[in-house]
Nucleic acid binder design. Structure first.
Lengths: 357, 357
DNA sequence: ATGAAAGCGCTAACAC
DNA sequence: GTGTTAGCGCTTTCAT
């Protein structure tokens, strides 16, 4: 195991010796240069240069206790939605002269726990996390120890944790209503594990929209649980569905995110060419940048990724240790494109009234 | 400025007091549990639980000097190519029980410098960086101070810095030769700043391929310098080109990455619909996941992103402080799709002989 | 098996 | 203006 012992680096003591001053003076040059006589300051700076001295941030932080680093734990760094969120976070943080360190949990609770601990040990001032598992207890524990925590893309189950999220039930309902209005009476939902709250909520929204229409969700909605929420996962799942259907694949598919939808399209094209692809109505989620650029432009539920990140960082920065938690909820929006509009199908209008939830 | 003073957390001393033992024993429970009598160990563990004590990683590292954190500074976290690289890094690191902290420089030298320093101060064992500016001197300085550095996606200009890269000149040549074989005698290259080595090299490769064909690069190759290397940048640049051309847009376009190519397609479609879009031959770079899924499937130069990240992390972990630098160079590969094959154009075969460089 | 004490590199009083 | 010194939270000899 290639652990490493940091080699000996120059320290304030070395610099002090080299410059013929005391460590206190070196520290002053570093932190309050104006209090040091120009001549000595010059000597110290020369010594710093000479030894290529870089202050040890750990020691400094250990002593001074001031920090400007924020950690973020995202679900999947390869999902453009999350990188867009990260960008929003960075924008806000940079404006406040803080810096962001990123990690990707891949919905693996062990990884999430590891990064949680790592960031806490590294002494971040706060943590932005998109929780994969439902268990927020470790997060509350971290917060109790003085690390500011903001939940991202997850309405906080425990109200003492601040959060920024999108109304996922509304989003699911938006997507379902769209397909129902187009006349579909059987909806296949390619979902993720219900331990991810977004997944559970979107399903709920879908079922509610169906019920609102006077239909029986148990009959109308078929849920398929994927384990990997990316193009590969969508591809495999759709492949199985087509195989199992004896040539009659689902007519209308809802996907828990756009990556999965891309996979669905890939599978359809592979198995039945453009003919098959254009015969199934498909709705994605997130409205990632390239959704409109696809061979089959993707109808999708838009979430304001950038704003979400920005706002989350905002909450984190604004929040003093003892203050009450805040919750920001954005509303999703349906963007209709070709993928849901099968040629020859009646079209009843794309929009929709306001959501139930 | 919402800097923060870390609130008081439980320390080993607190735990020791609570358990009625000495700090040394607490430390032993933490690091060498087997040397502690079961009874006392239980008491200490209870106290840890009680106080919800989390060891301060900074202090630990300060004292012990062992670290398992690696930092990576990428150019653009929104570019799927880089996130794929990051994934490769993580895979390798996780296998070695190390953890990755990510940052995105956005080709801003100031940001790059900031993160460089931040990571060094936080005491990472090593740094993987995709350098934006050409100046590697700061990186060499960091390395001299004992932080292992591996350059990513950039053949090291200074040979004492290990590196993992792809032969970018070869990649540029591959793309150019493809278009030349299709009969184009005017190539427009949407490039980035030459301070990014990849950009300079790809241009060089393109020019060499043109020269090899007995043509004059100065006549054949037109370079357009973008500042933002994403879809937005490509869109704007192509828009300008079409505007300026008086209705005769470039026939053959090379893009410095796939995101730019997506932008190009977007602009073409907006300005002249599918007709215009299918009239210009376009080649991207990176072969990102969705390249094949686009409305106009993208011909692209493939780089083995995942392997690159994996290999880079490998180098970092393997490298002892004093050992000589290593350089790994991957070869790119051309993936031909519809975007470069304008209907009605003669096609001379897609492949190509081995590159010049 | 456990405790006492030194020290990692730095900052912040406080003295001179 | 500059030096001295205590101590941040932890690990690690070295005694006991």
């Amino acid at each position: 195991m290639p652990r490493a012992t940091t080699p000996r680096r120059a320290s304030v003591a070395d610099v002090a010796r080299q410059a013929g001053v005391s460590v206190g003076t070196v520290s002053n040059v570093l932190n309050r240069p104006e209090t040091v006589a120009p001549a000595t300051r010059a000597r110290v700076e020369a010594a710093i240069e000479e030894l290529s001295f870089v202050p040890n941030g750990l020691a400094r932080q250990l002593r001074a206790g001031t920090i400007t680093t924020v950690g973020a734990i995202l679900l999947d760094i390869r999902n453009p939605f999350f990188t867009e969120v990260a960008r929003g976070i960075e924008d806000r943080l940079t404006a406040a002269d803080h810096t962001l360190m990123l990690a990707s949990s891949d919905d693996d609770p062990a990884r999430e726990a590891r990064y949680l601990r790592l960031f806490e040990e590294k002494g971040v001032v706060g943590l932005l996390v998109v929780p994969g598992s439902l268990d927020v207890e470790p997060l509350r524990a971290v917060q109790r120890r003085g690390v500011r925590v903001v939940l991202l893309d997850a309405a906080s189950s425990s109200p003492d944790l601040s959060s920024v999220s999108v109304d996922d039930a509304a989003g699911g309902a938006l997507a379902a209503r769209h397909l129902l209005e187009l006349g579909y009476r059987r909806l296949t939902f390619l979902n993720g594990p219900h331990t991810i709250r977004q997944c559970a909520d979107r399903l709920r929204g879908i079922r509610e929209a169906v019920a609102d229409e006077g239909l029986d969700p148990d009959v109308v909605v078929e849920e398929v649980r994927l384990t990997s929420l990316d193009a590969g996962g969508g591809d495999v799942a759709m492949g199985r569905l087509v195989d199992a259907s004896g040539g009659r694949p689902p007519e209308a598919v809802l996907c828990v995110n756009d990556l999965v939808a891309v996979g669905v399209q890939r599978a359809l094209r592979r198995l039945g060419g453009t003919a098959l692809l254009s015969r199934v109505a498909c709705v994605g989620y997130d409205d990632i940048d390239i959704a409109s650029e696809l061979a089959m432009p993707l109808t999708s539920v838009r979430q304001p990724a950038l704003e979400m990140g920005y706002r989350a960082a905002d909450l984190l920065l604004a929040r003093g240790p003892g203050e009450p938690a805040e919750h920001v909820v954005f509303q999703p929006e349906l963007v209709v494109r070709a993928s849901s509009l099968v040629p020859g199908r009646a079209r009843a209008g794309a929009g929709g009234s306001s959501p139930t939830s």
